[in-house]
Design a protein around this nucleic acid. Structure first.
Length: 574
RNA sequence: CGGGGCGUGGCGCAACCUGGUAGCGCGCCUGCUUUGGGAGCAGGAGGCUGUGGGUUCAAAUCCCACCGCCCCGACCA
């Protein structure tokens, strides 16, 4: 393409609304423009890279036997009501009515639609397994869209769904996706981590996320520095413990005054006790399902003073029941003391959960359920009882639960997520086939997502410098930018035109900067949009030479014009 | 949804506190010069100051309401 004829609206300055590097650069380089919060238009360059990313995904999905569908984005409410997600997802779903008042929504994902096709069409185990996928727009009414293409309300997702006869079949389908995802992200030039993921409200037995470590990411993961292989989403991550030796003896619990000492830090300063000898008490409420008949359930979660509670784990421990932090007045009503002075002693009708790190501990200090007082010499089991669960949020440099080396906690961008769904959707929607013995068997499903914009965002975050993007060739909008330094000089113009024709002939995707601009402007723009290779045609054109430079490394070398096309092809477009 | 910030030519900003009818840089258009890292000179186009209401002789500026965007938090298969 000739630059003078395509629309690449580059910006000299950072847009005021952009904070993270990828957002600034994608705007400045003319890839995208914002239409509304979390809604972006993809201009020429943005669409070119999006198409390349989608093509890589498509090739790898096809390679594992995936079949591409195109499904509606507009769904009738009944479909989502069948699985209960119409109400469950209402907060983040775009719901609307048609002219006659019938309810519809814009699809956030396509389990229901795919399962609907499956239940109508799949009859026999002989038709299994199936891998169906689509690459399509999804809608989520995110409470807070952010960071450019990081969290969108309107985004492109590759989502695939597998249908198998049994768990072994699901395992195989899952493995295929796992491997395909590795190939996809590698081909997109990403350095990524695969982490164990929390299944969350979706249920399901196993789940992995593909994460690109970046300070701009909004997820947090724990990775073992020793590469013993352990890596997990922080919601799910477990860690070992460094041993703590408690004071010996069996003194009785003793209440002592702690005026205005509410936080762990204050208590450490006031009582001179290290935080690992403290027990932090957090109060949660499980609201009663039937307000008239039942009372809200009060839950007391106890963790070590220097630990933090992981609410995802708490949710698991509570069996998936909805819960929320208690309000201060609820705490006062149930415990007779203000937040900051709460503890487990003498509580009735309160469900007590202890973090595993408190197992076998003794002589701990905690709240006395009396304002301005704490109590010391508290020993679990002897003084109170509760259920033990893993409730702790892993912190940076905690020992790896597998190899005891330190764990690193890092921010990351979730680019892919694979999920063993099991039978939930198939069951609620009645998707069954006949097995070998002629019996009705519920299908076993998996679901697997990739965020197309997230790949682009992550790639820019991972590959950029102050001058602009440095996209890997596989997803860059062009292979080569051809930059004549001054088109008014006839040898330069001739050489450039000759090279442009030669590159096109050789099927190299070339952007020919034929604009009537000064060299500096062209260089700046080329660096900004991140084309991996630049062919600069300057004064040496008269001697039959051009310069080849690499955006990612900055390396430059001269080449003979006659050989330049072949060189570029063999070295960069293989 | 809670907290904070911001809405002024295409972009980045100033003028607002202390009301008097809008300015700077970049970009854009024309011409001349220049030509390997965002050129110089000259001339020019472009803004009912987010919307609605109020106060005032007079509102970008003060007051009220609304809308939008960004950031932090909550939320997030």
């Amino acid at each position: 393409m000739r630059w003078s004829q395509v629309f690449i609206p580059t910006l000299r300055e950072d847009p005021a609304d952009a904070e993270v590097a990828s957002h600034k650069l994608l705007l400045r380089a003319g890839y995208i423009r914002q239409l509304s919060a979390g809604v972006y238009s993809y201009l020429y360059l943005g669409q070119r890279t999006a198409l390349k990313i989608m093509q890589i995904i498509r090739e790898e999905m096809d390679r594992i036997g995936g079949q591409e569908f195109y499904l509606p984005a507009l769904h009738p409410a009944e479909l989502w009501q069948e699985t209960g997600r119409w109400d469950q997802m209402a907060a983040t779903m775009f719901q609307l009515k048609d002219h006659s008042g019938r309810d519809f929504c814009l699809g956030m994902t396509h389990e229901e639609v795919m399962a609907d096709i499956a239940r109508h069409e799949l009859r026999s185990y002989r038709q299994l397994p199936q891998i169906w996928y689509q690459i399509q727009v999804k809608f989520r009414d995110e409470a807070r869209p952010k960071s450019g293409l990081m969290r969108l309300r309107h985004f492109i997702m590759k989502d695939s769904y597998t249908f198998d006869l049994d768990d072994a079949g699901l395992d195989a389908s899952y493995k295929k996706h796992y491997d395909a995802y590795c190939r996809i992200f590698t081909r997109c030039g990403l350095h990524y981590e695969i982490v164990e993921a929390h299944s969350g409200a979706m249920g399901g037995s196993q789940s992995h996320e593909f994460m690109v470590v970046s300070p701009a990411g909004e997820d947090r993961i724990a990775i073992c520095v020793k590469e013993c292989g352990y890596a997990a989403n922080l919601e799910k991550a477990r860690a070992g413990l460094k041993p703590v030796s408690d004071p010996p003896g069996d003194p009785k619990p003793e209440v002592f005054p702690t005026p205005n000492v509410r936080t762990i830090e204050e208590l450490v300063g006031f009582a001179g006790v290290k935080p690992e000898f403290l027990m932090k008490a957090l109060v949660y409420v499980i609201p009663a399902a039937d307000k008239g008949k039942q009372k809200d359930q009060i839950v007391l979660a106890l963790v070590r003073g220097d630990h933090q509670l992981n609410e995802a784990k708490l949710g698991d421990a509570l069996g998936g029941a909805p819960f929320r932090p208690a309000h201060p007045d609820e705490i006062r009503a149930h415990f007779g003391a203000a937040p900051g002075f709460i503890g487990p002693l003498g509580q009735k009708g309160v469900r007590i959960l202890l973090d595993d790190a408190l197992r076998g501990r003794r002589n701990l200090t905690t709240g006395a359920n009396q304002n301005d007082h704490h109590v010391r010499h508290v020993t679990p089991e002897r003084d109170f009882t509760g259920e033990y669960h893993d409730l702790r949020l892993v912190a940076d440099s905690d020992p790896c639960s597998r190899c005891a080396r330190p764990l690193r906690v890092a921010s990351a961008i979730e680019v892919g997520h694979i999920f063993k769904l099991g039978r939930r959707y198939a069951e609620s929607m009645g998707a069954r086939v006949l097995d070998r013995d002629g019996r009705q068997v519920t299908l076993v499903m998996g679901s697997y997502g990739i965020g197309v914009e997230r790949i682009l965002t992550a790639a820019v975050e991972q590959h950029h410098d102050p001058e602009g993007m440095k996209l890997p060739r596989s997803i860059a909008p062009f292979d080569v930018v051809l930059t004549p330094v001054n088109l008014n000089e006839e040898p330069i113009r001739q050489a450039a035109e000759q090279l442009y024709a030669g590159l096109r002939e050789a099927r190299v995707e070339v952007l020919y900067d034929d604009r009537d601009e000064r060299a500096g402007v062209k260089f700046k723009d080329a660096d900004l949009i991140g084309v991996p290779v630049r062919l600069t045609v300057g004064k040496k054109a008269a001697e039959g030479k051009v310069e080849i430079s690499e955006r990612s490394t900055g390396q430059r070398a001269d080449a003979r014009i006659s050989e330049a096309v072949g060189l570029v092809r063999s070295r960069y477009c293989g």
